[in-house]
Nucleic acid binder design. Structure first.
Lengths: 150, 150
DNA sequence: ACGTTTAGGTTCCTTCAGGGAACCCCGATT
DNA sequence: AATCGGGGTTCCCTGAAGGAACCTAAACGT
């Protein structure tokens, strides 16, 4: 991502950024999630430099959010989300909800999501894993945890 | 964030990244959320270059997620989250949940969140704004929206 | 058998952004 | 009048992004 290494910070935000916070990484994950799994597809869809795309894909594979696997007898590879990677898409879904609300403008959101469970076009909300009620920034107290810095 | 401009892409992820996807921006927002609102505090807590901190703060103010306001008769300023900015913290909360689960290791999460509504230490889940049931990456169909590219 | 095509990268060069230290400005304090 | 402290700005240096050219291995066409 940047020259300062975030991976050693005692902060889950910083550590998550170490995985997917570099420029392009979220967009690469988005494309792979919607089925664009090959190098050439990603490169031409995003308009990213091939060099940077190589670096990002390797990094995401190293961090265990993507898996690189052959799809032919020829040396051809596709990149697929691991379970860890699929859960990371949650972050993107919240970005979508925020961007749709605050940045879409007159034209409206570029993409809609239909929820399988209810069949409705909707968006994600944050809720509490314990009680299920809404859980946003102002609904919590922040406390030191077991892995807090010394 | 990077030299390629994401703000004009027909994608709410890209547009959200244009606002807070640059290196350090999420950590700046985190610090401001937990009450570290002044330049010197931010600089020394993060260890960020003063130059970059200035650029990030200006950018976040320009995009309407922070407000710069005087807190003294002397020329002293603090940065506070706007409503738009506070909603952006949702993205960070999901990063925390993911990082806590996948990257915290033996030590456990560095920070805990206690939910006001139920009093329990918990974490955020994604749910559907319409039916309230869980809503993750594999629970949706992706459809073109009104603001889709031509 | 030989040249072409295609996916998936490497290499190289240039430009721009991040790191880090030094410096500056302004109002208040002593 | 000199000092201090918050909030920046300027400078130089290094490293990462952009972009084009090049490379390789396995098929395919003829």
């Amino acid at each position: 991502m940047q020259r300062t290494d975030f991976s050693e910070m005692a902060c889950s935000i910083a550590r998550t950024l170490d995985v997917m916070g570099e420029p392009w990484s979220p967009l690469i994950l988005r494309d792979i999630f919607v089925g664009m799994s090959r190098f050439e597809q990603l490169q031409s869809d995003l308009g990213i430099s091939r060099k940077v795309l190589t670096e990002r894909l390797n990094h995401l594979v190293d961090r265990g959010v993507l898996e690189r696997r052959p799809y032919d007898k020829r040396p051809r590879y596709e990149y697929v989300l691991t379970g860890k990677g699929l859960e990371l898409i949650d972050v993107l879904m919240v970005m979508v909800a925020w961007g749709d609300k605050w940045l879409a403008g007159e034209a409206g959101p570029p993409v809609l999501y239909r929820h399988h469970a209810c069949g409705e076009v909707s968006h994600v909300e944050l809720s509490c894993s314990h009680c299920g009620k809404p859980m946003h920034a102002n609904d919590v107290d922040v406390l030191p945890g077991p892995g807090a810095a010394a």
